[in-house]
Write a protein that binds this DNA or RNA. Structure first.
Lengths: 226, 226
DNA sequence: TTTTGTTAGTAGCTGTTTGCTACTTTATAT
DNA sequence: ATATAAAGTAGCAAACAGCTACTAACAAAA
């Protein structure tokens, strides 16, 4: 039987062809009370002119997380935001040009932060309404529609048991704002009184209030211990 | 600016070195009321003599799921069991020989099924107590200890909101057996009465009972609608 | 044949959480 | 002043979780 060492020698002599590895980036935000995602318009075939997830190839001396951070910076123009690995997509024909295995990463950001920097660097990047995208016949490049659907599902699930909702808000926010974010992410309405009881464990008061609205002002809060 | 097409041409001419892609397999089972995992003993350096996760390289015309199924068959000797993708590990130095990106898969199986076939094919594969492994100073090859810890965490979480516990049992089982599986996976005891109320929604009675034990017999159940 | 040990299975109390309705409060606009 | 609109609170009922204590049914020992 062939030893592992011999096997690896042959493997590396390109007797075995290696797939390419890329990271694809799902940068989510909330704008105008809708969940949105950053997509770029493809300039070349295949799928020319169609929206696609931004992505980069993984460098040989680069971790996956590093590649993801670089991709978010290069393609969406932002740094320092929350991201986590989502899933790895490895179907054989998913890219018609060559075998590409894609490690998808999900990133969540406040829309103001996103807009501020995105304008400067990447003209191609645009915000798309996620639910509209997924519920319509609209076509996306590669298997990216499937990947986005998976991302939306992950967001919904994680909203239930983690605190990712805060990633979409500025440092100081009102409770109605926070509740609205939860409602958008979960896709259903919540009861105000119950929501406030649970949320109160995660937040602390500031002494600031909203003003100027034609109704009772709302207190501003921030996240507790973090 | 270089076009995508030109970039890809260069990329494929090995001006860019590609990482290798493997799948590593976490085959979990329950034996003697303990969560266990299939590990093989490494025969060659690096980490010679140390336990390691079974794994295979991903073929250029093979999906990740196919590679995982093949790996489970080749290395653990079983087919047709539950598995799901866990996480993709891409640190640069995780394999000292070369850059290998590892897509880990988690597989759950009843211990009888595992033992039955595993004996025939793979002499190297052995069952290791997961908690003992993770709570001791015991060393594993590569970053496999970290991967197993991640797998145990996934099992704990999924036990809360899904029905993976059933994967560890035969088709017919008693409620005390089912509760014990949940307790092992969650790492804590549960209240019998509460457990039975919730479990009753997922199972249906058979007309069989256990017998021969020096105590009251227990009814056998099976999973509902599946 | 009775007793003992052991596990299967049930009853039911208590406190917390969730679903839900309805109210009070405080700002601006008319 | 009055209307409107959203912020924030009170509180009930049903469901659920935490927990204790019971009864039921078997084999083996006495």
């Amino acid at each position: 039987m062939e030893s592992e060492k011999e096997f690896l020698k042959n493997y590396n002599k390109d007797e075995y062809e290696k797939p390419s590895v890329a990271v694809d980036l799902l940068v989510f935000t909330i704008e105008n009370d809708r969940l949105k995602i950053v997509l770029i318009e493809r300039a070349e075939p295949p799928f020319s002119g169609m929206p696609a997830l931004p992505g980069v190839f993984v460098g040989i001396n680069e971790t996956l997380d590093e590649a993801a951070a670089r991709g978010i910076a290069e393609e969406a123009g932002i740094t320092g935001i929350y991201f986590e690995q989502l899933y790895t997509w490895g179907d054989v024909g998913r890219d018609p040009r060559m075998r590409i295995i894609s490690v998808s990463y999900m990133s969540l950001a406040n829309c103001e932060k996103l807009k501020l920097i995105a304008g400067k660097r990447t003209s191609a990047a645009e915000l798309y309404d996620v639910d509209e995208l997924l519920d319509s016949e609209c076509e996306l490049a590669f298997d990216h529609k499937k990947i986005i659907r998976y991302g939306r599902e992950r967001i919904r699930n994680k909203t239930e048991y983690s605190n990712i909702a805060f990633e979409f808000l500025p440092d100081e926010f009102t409770l109605p704002q926070l509740q609205k974010v939860y409602e958008i992410l979960l896709g259903r309405t919540l009861y105000k009184a119950n929501f406030r009881k649970k949320a109160s464990l995660l937040i602390e008061e500031t002494d600031k209030m909203t003003s100027g609205d034609a109704h009772r002002p709302s207190r501003l809060y921030r996240r507790k211990n973090q």
